[in-house]
């Protein structure tokens, strides 16, 4: 069986936000909606540092989107099965035609801010759709999130955020295949995961 996962090299990420934009474009995301966020682990605002110079000043970036957990909290609580785990690939998918807009999944997901609700009729800066022709539909009053670009996986491509990463910080592959690049990286590099104590078993690894 395939279990897709991602490893993001935090030593390489320069916080260019290219992944966020590639994601927005490939998935034709409405204004104000982002599946991927490059978070600043530092000060109060984006790109600010925490601590004092020269003692403990630091700044670090975490590109965060859906963690495609093996034990997803969102899937358990969705009353109608609109968010579900794909048995073939391990990807946590989202069905915008089914979602009733109760927002139980947003509340259940421990990863603050990876899920977003379309709080109004989706608006677009451009008056034509962009990205993949089969990009997901965006429906008012339903919940959305990263689907690991499922439309691209189906065509044998990798997620859009992978394609543009200038620093080549992102790695993608089958976690179930011990010979895949990602499995090798996880076996050899030091890594961490977000909120492992929540027991969700995320499929995204951060190489440190």
């Amino acid at each position: 069986m395939t279990h897709y996962g991602m490893a993001i090299d935090l030593k390489r990420c320069v916080a260019c936000h290219g992944c966020t934009l590639a994601c927005k474009s490939a998935n034709n995301l409405p204004d104000g909606v982002r599946y991927n966020n490059v978070l600043t682990d530092g000060g109060q605002y984006m790109d600010t540092a925490r601590g004092t110079y020269p003692n403990d000043l630091y700044r670090k970036y975490y590109p965060v989107s859906c963690q495609h957990c093996e034990n997803p909290a969102c899937v358990k609580v969705c009353p109608v099965g609109a968010t579900y785990k794909d048995p073939e690939t391990g990807v946590v998918r989202q069905d915008s035609d089914k979602c009733i807009g109760c927002r139980m999944c947003i509340s259940a997901c421990p990863y603050t801010g990876v899920r977003s609700f379309n709080w109004e009729e989706p608006k677009y800066s451009l008056d034509f759709p962009v990205g993949d022709y089969d990009a997901p539909q965006h429906v008012k009053h339903t919940v959305e999130k990263c689907r690991f670009c499922y439309q691209r996986l189906a065509k044998g491509q990798t997620p859009a955020c992978m394609e543009v990463c200038g620093a080549m910080a992102r790695h993608w592959g089958d976690l179930d295949d011990p010979d895949s690049e990602i499995s090798q990286l996880i076996a050899t590099r030091e890594w961490e995961q977000l909120l492992p104590e929540m027991g969700t078993k995320p499929s995204v690894y951060y190489l440190i």
């Binding site: 104000g32 600043t40 000060g43 109060q44 984006m46 975490y62 990863y111 603050t112 801010g113 909120l195």
Partner: peptide
Amino acid sequence: GFQIPNIPFANVEGPYAITFGGNGVDA
């Protein structure tokens, strides 16, 4: 339940993120 974020890192501000945004994470 929503008052303490699990990942309290600074993000790009957006219109749909949080009710009272704009002044940094702690604010």
